[in-house]
Write a protein that binds this DNA or RNA. Structure first.
Lengths: 336, 336
DNA sequence: CTGAAAGCGCTTACAG
DNA sequence: CTGAAAGCGCTTACAG
């Protein structure tokens, strides 16, 4: 048995002739190892680590991938899979580096990370590669960084689709793109969404549309509202594209100033967004399934690290179009 | 150990006092059984049966749920789960009864079925209940028939959403609903889709829209095209709602007669539908994920029968809105 | 380099 | 009614 086990896992210490004999018998019998028995007997626990933005609230976006992650981890309890969670501050790239260093010290068997700050993320993944620790990107990706997989959407294409939808429902094409973000340059997928969005309109004749962009880096106090409102009036804005999950902020602005006839498209199923969608203030929400993405990211690591199965490098998540009529069938997360 | 096992599975033959003592220790230790060890040791194979329409071709709709079903079954190999597939002819309710009888004779541990013919399906599920064989509905459902779960969409709501989408893109609201089906009465979900669709428009003032319905029971020869074409001309149809996966047939009609300015909404990601969607002849496809539904249906049985976990009775599948811009991210099926 | 032995956490007859 | 024994298909030291 010991010898057979050694050739099965290529652990050496087997003479060439017995190796061949065993391999022959394996293929002759079409032997398939029993994963259950294998993991039951081996008992060596795998340790995974996650590096994601700190969830800002119960209702915030980053709470959700974590739900999926924890769900899959709890299901894998009997496989001896453990998890350590590391969080960084979205507005502070240094915290990313600090936490990344902790992970390197921990030497986990696999990492799930959101490469939020590009430069810092590249540096981190270089180190992971050196340590031969496999990792999966979630939410946004860096191409060819050595990830075993990326779980998330194609941001450019999502923006392109958003362009089509807004175009379809806004007759007078004075459109405003709103980024609620600090350090736009580092937030690659917001940039890509805008690019896709503008490219949709680029096939129209110039002069038939009018697209402006505004960046809001601070929403703690209400002054941002005034500046956005000014732009809306000045440019006679009829459609707004919010590039991240903060569309509900625009809704509050619309309510406060009692603005009419503005069509609005935003992202992600935050509770407030859903409420405004149902009230008809938001017209479309483009969504990904963040719980499912968390779940899948861990699952990819599990299949790769524990089960040693081949996994697909990229399969982009679906870009879901939600309206008040179908949103109810997207809210639940259940893999059962 | 034997005694503990008996109280864990409520198999009796335990004195009340030891039962309570064991239960006490279990909760004190917060004991969680190890599923791996359990299934490894028990080795009693579960047998599942499916009763679905015979897939008419590689590209037909019913090929897909079967893919998901087989995928999940193959993953459950080590749990000793086996599958027997039964198929009936969609145009022949007797074949449904014949195959259902075979399943009853087989006495499987669980059944997945599409209750295509309502009367016959009710009769079958009554018998399953009598035999205490759990079953899961897929694709369409019969309410309160004793199913442990339903995997599929809310058809009424899907029709309602279709109404909104067509309404949004068709300026002149002369609309045609096309059913490609025999025995409409028995095909509950097509009826529901139509009802939802009409209800969307019912909130408009009468006279501002005009909706007709046509049923096509035979598409072997081309005569159906002439009758549909006649209606399109006569009623000056500008939007068409196809209630099942056969929208591509309307596309062929549109191509043949070189009709312009017709907006078209159909269902399901058949290869031909996708092609026409990308060409812009179909505007929207409402889709479910049939592979995933097959996968989930088996998974529900597995969790209920083998793992004896509680499962959710109904969580409707999402109603996906597909356009040429996001369709590519729905085509793949991969649970990995 | 090889293979017997013990053990992973359960289930299943079965002797008492 | 109770619990010792064998076994599910592997892995992991370890004696030879």
């Amino acid at each position: 048995m010991g010898t057979v086990d050694r050739v099965l896992h290529g652990r050496g210490e087997v003479s060439e002739k017995t190796r061949e004999r065993i391999l022959g018998i394996i293929s002759e019998l079409n032997y398939q190892p029993n994963v259950l028995a294998s993991t039951l007997a081996s008992k060596k626990p795998a340790l995974f680590a996650t590096l994601l933005p700190l969830p800002l609230s119960e209702e915030g976006y980053w709470t959700k991938p974590l739900l999926g992650i924890k769900k899959r981890i709890s299901e894998l309890r009997h496989y001896g899979v453990r998890l350590e969670i590391f969080s960084f501050n979205q507005t502070n790239s240094e915290s990313f580096v600090t936490e990344a260093d902790k992970i390197l010290k921990l030497k986990p068997d696999g990492v799930v990370l959101a490469p939020f700050f590009k430069n810092e993320a590249v540096h981190f993944t270089e180190q992971l590669k050196a340590e031969k620790i496999p990792f999966v990107f979630i939410d946004s990706e860096i191409e060819n960084a050595g990830q075993i997989s990326y779980v998330g959407q194609n941001s450019y294409q999502s923006g392109f689709l958003s362009g089509k939808l807004i175009d379809q429902i806004v007759p007078q094409k004075n459109i405003l793109i709103v980024h609620f973000a600090k350090e736009m340059d580092n937030q690659n997928h917001l940039v890509l969404r805008e690019r896709g969005f503008r490219d949709w309109f680029s096939k129209r004749p110039t002069g038939t549309f009018n697209i402006s962009t505004i960046e809001i880096s601070e929403t703690e106090n209400g002054t941002w509202m005034d500046s956005v409102h000014a732009v809306i009036i000045e440019k006679n804005i009829k459609g707004i594209f919010v590039t991240n999950s903060k569309a509900y902020l625009i809704c509050r602005l619309i309510e406060k100033h009692k603005i009419e006839n503005i069509r609005l498209l935003g992202h992600d199923l935050l509770k407030w967004n859903v409420e405004y969608l149902k009230e008809g203030i938001i017209d479309y929400i483009i969504s990904q399934k963040p719980e499912e993405q968390g779940f899948n990211a861990i699952n990819k690591l599990f299949r790769n690290v524990v089960q040693k199965r081949p996994i697909q490098k990229t399969n982009y998540s679906s870009i879901d179009i939600l309206t008040s009529e179908n949103v109810d069938y997207y809210k639940e997360f259940s893999k059962s």
